[in-house]
Amino acid sequence: MNAFRFLGDMTHLFSVLVLLLKIYATKSCSGVSRKTQELYMVVFLARYMDLFTDYISLYNSVMKVVFITSSAAIVWCMRRHPQVRRTYDKEQDTFRHVVLVAAAFVLALIFNERFTFREICWAFSIYLEAVAILPQLVLLQRGRNVDNLTGQYVFFLGAYRAFYILNWIYRYFTEGHHSRWISWLSGLVQTGLYADFFYYYFLR
């Protein structure tokens, strides 16, 4: 594993934990899109279906479990925690996220490495991850002031994707590893969405 991949994983982990701790410590999820969080939970569940079938390393398995449980904890807090759920901006968080799920699913059925359950789940998770931040970006644009922590959360998520692209470039030249074109294309779209957000974020 190269440094870019590791930094990518760490910024990703950090973004999720920062958000969970923020919600838990302040007992508030104001400014956080529950729809985006639900999409991420679906992303992790679909992608890490291979947890029991393909063993890569202890590191990979532990990280997969951490991502699934921490995203589920965020969603649980926003839906069920007696104090946190009252701070959810339901009227502002109106993005039709089901549309994204349906579109990602149809894309995965058409464009996949192979027409198998594993590969369709994987492609679906990659497509959905690329656009999962959209409800959060819409919510941020509606709010007057972007909360520092929410801004940092989006920043770390963007950094994660950027590091992953560097990791693919590095692997391409050192290992001759051809990351699948599905990840390249989706990763670029995803990073572009974040770059766009930060362009306006820093302008303000």
């Binding site: 991949r5 994983d9 990703h12 992608r47 291979d50 393909d54 890569i56 990979n60 990280m63 997969k64 991502f67 490495e113 192979r114 198998t116 590969e119 994987w122 992953y164 990791n167 990351s179 990840s183």
Partner: peptide
């Protein structure tokens, strides 16, 4: 043609 390799990234 063989089954695609397992996904080694997160």
């Amino acid at each position: 043609d063989s089954e695609p390799e397992a996904h080694d990234e997160l």
